Simulated assay, not measured.
Amino acid sequence: MTEARDPKKFRPNVGLALFHRDGLVFLGKRAGAEGPYQWQMPQGGVDRGETTLEAAYRELEEEIGVTAAHVDLLEETADWYYYEFPIDVRTKMRPRGRYLGQRQKWFAFRFKGRDADIKLDTHTPEFSDWRWAALETAPGLVIPFKRPTYEIVAQRFKKYSVGDSK
């Protein structure tokens, strides 16, 4: 997933692992999605002129209502992790064929707020439900084309998860 690829063909994106004090990670159920594998961690595009850290804080607030005051930054991955969209996903996108997939910087945050601080409706809802879950379960719950990235993230951030929380 970190092999050399043409970054211009992959949309810059951030992935967000939000860890509860007890080491569980936030998972959201994608709004409007059908079928299995609809749970994922928040993620979103990096806007022009924005750093990946700025995008991470913005996406946390837009997708789940969590502000920078509610979190401590634990880690940002040095590498970009890449995944390709399946052809059926790519053909539905506008403009067609612009990106082969996404390249992601991943961030681990420690949540220091309360569950009531999580609000799925601060912007256009991306998630219809949410839960705290063991990090190692995330790869099996995400849509399959994202699974290899989630496996890397689960390994990379396991030090913040249940039993290893610092």
Results as ranks from 00 to 15, higher is better:
G163N: 01
M93K: 11
Q43A: 15
Y81W: 13
T51P: 08
K92D: 00
I152H: 13
R48F: 15
G163Q: 01
D88E: 15
T52Q: 11
E84G: 00
A108P: 00
D88L: 09
R110W: 04
G23S: 03
P86S: 01
W80N: 14
T91A: 08
W132A: 01
D72K: 10
G140A: 12
D47H: 15
F157V: 01
R156S: 12
K146C: 12
R110L: 02
I87S: 11
Y83V: 14
G45F: 10
E61M: 02
F127W: 11
S161C: 06
K159Q: 07
A17F: 13
H20E: 12
V14E: 01
E75C: 08
V142S: 03
A69T: 07
V142L: 08
T149M: 14
E61D: 12
F26E: 06
P12G: 04
P12H: 07
K8L: 13
H123L: 13
E34Y: 06
V66A: 03
S128V: 06
I87R: 12
G35H: 06
L27F: 11
D115P: 03
Y150I: 07
E136P: 11
V14L: 05
A78I: 15
Y99N: 03
R90W: 04
K166N: 14
E151K: 10
T52G: 13
